[in-house]
Design a protein around this nucleic acid. Structure first.
Length: 813
DNA sequence: TCCTCCCGCCAAGCA
DNA sequence: TGCTTGGCGGGAGGA
């Protein structure tokens, strides 16, 4: 029944609306007026009746017939098509794509200026729009609802809306972001993802119940429309359908982007969050499908607004649709915090010059006091519930999420900026010098006069530095010197969250700094807790810390070294626990970042770089690298011999890599460590693995873990056995995948990291690196089941552990 | 086969 | 009571 009706009606639409414009054709023109007594379909009949009843519509019809040459061309084309094909109306129908909501939205938006003059309001008459765009009213509602959610339009009366354009967009987005943060959407996203993985291993478990309790009941967690000052919300059925409204859904959807990092949201996650807040108990496939449908509707409109862009996220379970935020960056409004407590009765400002403070506060606390237009009070419950849930997992501050996020951010930061800049600005000679200075026998002394501006030692780094500095340090165990990069914020984060990580990088505490010309990038960080707990925005303290005598860090290093040496064969977990106890709070450390071996510099001051290698390093010195985030500067292959600059997109959940990025990083020199190695070139997987392990503090610097046992990259380090115990297993598939776990004694949790290096199809195609985490069930007192499976079968070895398998590859269509 | 989303039914609620 | 609004899901087009 449905299909014939649809075809008939659409065909009729073409006839009734386009035939009158066929006059310019050479073929005999059809009569302008459709014969009243010859209705083709009920739809056309209805339209005719409507037209007859409404003089306005009639006059519009006449106006339309006289204008719009472009549409006339289109109509002519259709008319011609009709003539040519006779009754084959179906073939003359616009394709499904031509009728898409996105295209329709484009047409709709083209009618109105992005930034209309405030003095000249544009009004939208739905009848007019539906007529002129030749669409059903229903479709316009879809568009208008989404636009309304962004306060680009507002309803004035029946059939009548006001067009605001993008004037309100920044304020709206800011308000949405704030509400999204308050709703802890990011935690919800993470929770959903985690439970997805849990569900894989416990499909019949009571996860739904748990999830429901986290989200709260539907009544509790429903969230309402976020209002903006001066943009009144007059939805027709605001009281009845508001919670399921496309407007609210749209706002929530946007919130997810605004709080996510990166700003990529999959439809699946978005739908689950929306369902979770709506009616979790009714979570079923049909509801999910419906939500997805609506999200497509919203996404189409948002895409037309160029706020989002469709991408695909490839996971192990398949390619999933997702959307990436391409709209304006929404900066946090630092003033908002103050507002929350004070501005509940803010008078409604209307003018364009309204301050963001007022707007935001109004958005969050409407003057009318209608709670249902802002956050629902039950959100507090929701947040508490989420936090409780998190506490269950994260009994100690060593949050997997936080660690992974900070770690990855750190990785990104390092690999994108510091490392490349560092290398690009160091000559081979400087490298050698640093290596020499960094040997234990020759603890570096700050001698500014001898140091070029770009390579000053730790103690003389001016406070104007910032962020991150590379530090060259020796590694007595491996005989390789390393460059350490550390980001203050990372140091702060990790130290604050995870004392369990403090044990690791200590053998590397003999530091000397190298200052970069780029003050934005480089800074020296010491490895003391006190420093670590400083915020990056405390340069004075930072400087003071940097000027501490090296004795202390050296002592720290030695202490750590002693510890690590005193426990050569014990289980690393126990060692960590022991370390934790012995360290107590008297002296703590934080991960000092990646240890980047300067593979050509031998430990002990007799650094020698081969001519070839030196040339490789030197070739970098004049090369300017740029972060791919701010702009990619592709490097010639010749410059990638020694170092490749990674192109990352960072996220707590995934990392995107450009080809060869990690693989070519000079992380490890097998020749220094592994006499059995036949190649001086590092095994990419092994390098990356050690790179990561060292950074996250799982292994001491210099200890090398075989990323690919099959390839016999067995470390010669005496401590490698410890690693195999603690890290569970490593796994490399075709040299492309690394999985390993590490254990946090603080929260009794294991973390699984999985690095996957996908085979690039094209040179610049991003590769995916995945990060996984799971926890040991059984509560904080459960002794984690750690074993060293060589095949990466943590599922077995860990019993019931949750093995998320996320291999995210984000690709744009 | 699955993704995408058009299409229109029909109910809520407004004028 | 008629009309507007919009939730909802069937099912078709497209990849």
């Amino acid at each position: 029944l449905k299909t014939p009706l649809k075809q008939a009606s659409t065909s009729q639409l073409v006839l009734t609306e386009r035939q009158p414009d066929c006059q310019p054709l050479t073929t005999p023109p059809k009569p302008k007026e459709t014969p009243p007594a010859d209705p083709w379909t009920p739809t056309s009949n209805l339209k005719m009746l409507i037209s007859a009843a409404s003089p306005e519509i009639r006059s519009r019809e006449q106006r339309r017939q006289l204008s719009d040459s472009s549409s006339e061309v289109l109509q002519t084309k259709h008319c011609l098509q009709e003539h040519l094909l006779g009754d084959e109306y179906e073939k003359s129908q616009p394709s499904r794509k031509e009728k898409s909501l996105g295209l329709l939205c484009h047409k709709f938006l083209a009618r109105y200026p992005d930034y209309p003059s405030p003095s000249q309001k544009s009004y939208i008459c739905l009848d007019e729009v539906t007529e002129e765009l030749h669409v059903e009213r229903r479709r316009i509602y879809d568009i208008v609802n989404v636009l309304e959610s962004l306060h680009m339009v507002s309803r004035l009366a029946r059939n009548r809306y006001v067009w605001h354009g993008r004037h309100n967009l920044p304020q709206t987005l800011q308000a949405l972001k704030k509400v999204g943060e308050e709703n802890k959407y990011i935690q919800q996203i993470q929770m959903i993802k985690r439970r997805e993985y849990e569900h894989e291993f416990d499909p019949d478990g009571e996860r739904n119940e748990e999830m429901a309790s986290s989200f709260g009941s539907s009544e509790q967690s429903e969230m309402s429309f976020v209002e903006l000052p001066g943009v009144e919300f007059r939805a027709a059925s605001v009281n009845g359908r508001k919670y399921k409204s496309l407007r609210v859904m749209s706002q929530k959807f946007v919130m997810l982007f605004l709080v996510s990092t990166p700003q990529i949201v999959s439809l699946e996650v978005a739908a689950k969050i929306l369902i979770g807040e709506d009616q979790l108990e009714d979570l079923d496939k049909s509801k999910f499908k419906t939500k997805i449908r609506r999200l497509y509707d919203i996404a189409n409109v948002l895409s037309s607004l160029k706020l989002i862009k469709k991408v695909h996220v490839t996971e192990e379970r398949g390619r999933k649709p997702a959307f990436k935020w391409t709209g304006p960056e929404v900066l946090p409004n630092t003033q908002d915090i103050k507002l929350e407590a004070t501005s509940t009765t803010c008078s409604p400002p209307i003018s364009e010059s309204i301050t963001s403070k007022e707007q935001c506060s109004k958005a969050l606390f409407p003057s009318k006091g209608k709670q249902n237009f802002t956050r629902h009070s039950s959100l507090i419950k929701l947040v508490k519930s989420i936090e409780n849930d998190r506490r269950k997992i994260q009994s100690a501050p060593t949050s997997p999420v936080k660690i992974s996020a900070s770690t990855y951010l750190f990785i990104i930061f390092l690999l994108e900026t510091s490392f490349s800049l560092f290398l690009s600005q160091m000559t081979a000679e400087e490298m050698q010098m640093k290596c020499a200075l960094s040997s234990p026998e020759a603890v570096p002394k700050p001698e500014p006069s001898q140091q070029p501006a770009l390579s000053q030692p730790l103690g003389v780094c001016p406070a104007s530095h910032s962020s991150v500095s590379p530090v060259i340090l020796p590694h007595p165990q491996s005989g390789v010197s390393y460059a350490i990069y550390l980001h203050p914020s990372q140091a702060h984060t990790v130290t604050t969250y995870s004392p369990g990580f403090m044990l690791q990088p200590l053998p590397c505490a003999n530091v000397t700094g190298i200052k970069s010309n780029n003050s934005k990038i480089l800074n020296i960080i010491t490895t003391e807790e006190g420093d670590a707990q400083r915020g990056p925005d405390e340069p004075a303290k930072s400087l003071a810390a940097e000027e501490r005598p090296e004795m202390k860090s050296e002592t720290s290093s030695q202490r750590c070294l002693k510890r690590s040496q005193a426990l050569p064969d014990s289980n690393l977990i126990k060692r960590r626990k022991s370390d934790e106890e012995s360290l107590d709070t008297s002296l703590t450390f934080f991960p000092s970042g990646y240890l980047i071996p300067l593979t050509h510099c031998t430990h002990g001051n007799k650094a020698e770089c081969s001519t070839k290698e030196k040339a490789g390093v030197c070739s970098l010195q004049h090369t300017a690298y740029s972060s791919p985030i701010t702009g990619v500067i592709p490097m010639p292959a010749s410059e990638l011999k020694t170092v490749n600059i990674p192109a990352f997109h960072i996220t707590p959940l995934n990392i995107m890599l450009s080809p060869n990025s990690i693989a070519a990083a000079p992380v490890l020199s097998n020749s220094c460590l592994n006499s059995s190695s036949t190649s001086s070139a590092p095994n990419p997987s092994s390098s990356a693995l050690n790179f990561m392990l060292q950074h996250i503090g799982l292994i001491p610097a210099g200890v090398q873990v075989p990323a690919n046992p099959v390839l016999q990259h067995v470390p010669v380090s005496s401590q490698s056995e410890n690693i195999s115990h603690s890290s569970g297993s490593t796994n490399v598939q075709e040299g492309k995948v690394i999985e390993f776990t590490f254990y946090s004694p603080i929260n009794e949790s294991n973390f699984l990291f999985s690095l996957q290096f996908l085979q690039p199809k094209e040179p610049q195609e991003p590769q995916a690196v995945t990060e996984n985490f799971f926890r040991t069930p059984g509560g904080p007192n459960t002794e984690p089941a750690l074993s060293a499976n060589s095949d990466g079968t943590q599922r077995t070895s860990q019993g019931t552990l949750y093995i998320p398998q996320r291999k995210l590859e984000v690709s744009e269509d």
